[in-house]
Design a protein around this nucleic acid. Structure first.
Length: 580
DNA sequence: AAAAAAC
């Protein structure tokens, strides 16, 4: 483990300034290319995709099915719909300068469709919001300072809806500024800080934002702090530590806004340490994820605790499958539904491809080969489990790949945070991760995503590759597939087609496997997974290292009673614990 | 259809 950290961080190898200039070079080139392709495509009018678009957008649900047939038929460039989007959702606090230097990529507009009663008119500029809704000018200032210039599609439509206190289901592609779409209205409605109105018993937590991972909650919190500059609101990123302070009622009464993962909040509710009866705004980010089986109960419990009659609810996501949408709509009151671009379709800005790799063993050589040639760092690599993330990262380090990092939820909070910061600072060239990183995370610099392990759903695919191509930048996504992935290959291939990437003929000719067949193959896959898929490569080097580590641990245990906290790397055992 | 994440 220590070897891993040393190697991957290896000071000598990492030449930051060089990296930076590479990045700049890339940016310059790319934005020109993006401009060119935009202007080339848009004016030509590409009728077929446009027509397709309207068909789907107006039809509402079930588009995926409808799209499959012609996806196969007209193939290729045809399916490339209008360029959409983009905005400037930026990231994180420490990224302000980076944003400044990268400046504005082209911002093609998305088609937007809305459905619902009395839909408020959209705005073209942030200034228009002040005229119409009288939102605090300090907030507008902070928005400008954070580098936001023009509202994106979801912002110009979603913000007025939320400012008029309507419930909203918003579907907008990855990297198109959803975060600001809900933060601005919520913060605009927040009013005076709870701490300042002691006489008012109706203060306390007035807004709640729920996200599926700690990392995403943290990122939202950062964004929130930027918008809140100059105000005295107490904006809390919920964690074990902050939850512990809530035993004191005075502390919780001063909170204005909470950003949290659901379970954390449920724990505090059940402990009787939190009142949500004055919450006026609830936002579910990554809504389809928040409403799937594992989270639904928790989310419902939180929502049930928000008993104020005027509570406004909003759900946001880049994907919203029909069943999730049903659940979402049933929670909302007289909702408005806004769809930007094509539902469940990635951005055309992302150049996607599929790579055949026969079987699991063939993946590592393929990846090493890829990384031995010039690529655009940072690359984000997705695998299907924590142990696979750990061992793939180790294999890469051992193979001499520079600046390799790893991030999964089995790591300690500190390790996770450190990994994210390295990523944000541009120090990671190759980041190996699990689904934790698949949703919402906004690393502007990510130019390439590799699905080392095949994604388990269309939604997962869309979100994973959506880590690149953000805010109008171009991106590249490669997906490895093995024979075992065959049953799900065609579904993903159709997603590629829909978003303007090309797919080899033979894949399109694959029959759609029957449900039974899929189930059968699923079984085989699972059985094999149990047998061999925990670790990636199992090189001799790693085996040896593991044995050494194991014996060290044994020794450490024996002497533990004496030396206790003195071990140099308490976290190493945890992260490496699965090595058995 | 299934793992990851949430604590």
């Amino acid at each position: 483990m220590e070897a891993f950290h040393l190697l991957s961080r290896g000071g000598a190898k990492f030449d930051k300034s060089k990296f930076k200039s590479d990045v700049n070079l890339f940016n310059g080139k790319k934005s020109k290319a993006a401009n060119a392709s935009t202007s080339a495509r848009a004016p030509e009018g590409e009728l077929p995709p446009e027509l397709d678009f309207f068909k789907y957008a107006q039809g509402g649900q079930g588009k995926r099915k409808a799209s499959e047939p012609n996806g196969g038929a007209d193939a290729k460039g045809k399916k490339r719909r209008v360029e959409e989007d983009e905005d400037t959702e930026d990231e994180d606090a420490d990224e302000a300068e980076q944003a400044a230097e990268e400046d504005d990529p082209p911002m093609p507009r998305h088609r937007v469709t809305t459905k619902g009663n009395n839909v408020p008119e959209h705005v073209e500029t942030f200034e228009a919001l002040r005229e119409r809704y009288n939102i605090p000018s300090r907030l507008l200032q902070n928005i400008a300072q954070s580098g936001y210039k023009r509202p994106t599609g979801i912002q110009s439509h979603g913000i007025p809806i939320l400012l008029e206190h309507r419930d909203l289901a918003a579907i907008s592609p990855t990297g198109t500024g959803k975060t600001l779409s809900y933060l601005l209205p919520v913060m605009s409605a927040l009013g005076a800080p709870a701490a300042s109105s002691k006489s008012n018993p109706g203060s306390g937590v007035r807004a709640l934002i729920l996200a599926p991972t700690r990392e995403l909650a943290h990122q939202i919190h950062n964004e929130c702090l930027k918008l809140a500059q100059g105000r005295k609101w107490k904006i809390v990123l919920f964690s074990k530590a902050t939850a512990a302070t809530l035993a004191d009622k005075k502390v919780r009464e001063k909170i204005d806004l909470i950003i949290s993962t659901p379970l954390r909040l449920v724990a505090s509710l059940q402990a009787g340490n939190l009142e949500l009866n004055n919450v006026r705004h609830i936002v579910l980010d990554e809504a389809d994820r928040m409403l799937d089986a594992e989270f639904l109960e928790q989310v419902q419990e939180v929502i049930a605790a928000c008993t104020h009659p005027e509570v406004q609810k909003a759900v946001f996501s880049a994907t919203l499958p029909a069943n999730a949408e049903k659940v979402a709509m049933s929670m909302l009151r007289d909702p408005i539904r806004v769809v930007v671009g094509l539902k469940d379709t990635p951005l055309p800005l992302i150049a996607q491809s599929l790579t055949y790799v026969a079987d699991d063993q063939s993946k590592l050589p393929t990846l090493l080969q890829y990384l031995s040639q010039p690529y655009n760092p940072p690359v984000l690599i997705f695998v299907s489990s924590q142990p696979r993330a750990t061992s793939l990262a180790e294999e890469l380090v051992i193979s001499g790949v520079p600046n390799v990092d790893c991030l999964h939820a089995g790591m300690t909070m500190k390790e996770r945070e450190d990994a994210v910061s390295r990523m944000r600072r541009g120090e990671s060239w190759v980041m190996v991760s699990t689904e934790v990183m698949a949703r919402g995370m906004d690393f502007k610099g990510v130019r390439e995503v590799i699905n080392y392990d095949f994604p388990q759903s269309v939604q997962s695919y869309i979100h994973r590759i959506g880590r690149t191509g953000r805010a109008g930048r171009e991106g590249k996504a490669i997906t490895y597939f093995t024979n075992e992935d065959a049953p799900f290959l065609k579904t993903i291939a159709n997603v590629l087609l829909q978003s303007g990437s090309t797919v080899p003929e033979w894949i399109l000719k694959l029959p759609k496997p029957s449900k039974m067949k899929r189930r059968e193959m699923g079984k085989v896959k699972r059985a094999e997974a149990v047998n061999n898929a925990r670790r990636i490569g199992r090189s001799d080097a790693i085996k040896k290292r593991d044995m050494v580590a194991a014996s060290k641990r044994r020794k450490a245990k024996e002497t533990q009673s004496k030396t206790d906290g003195a071990t140099s790397s308490p976290h190493a055992d945890g992260a490496d614990g699965e090595s058995a």
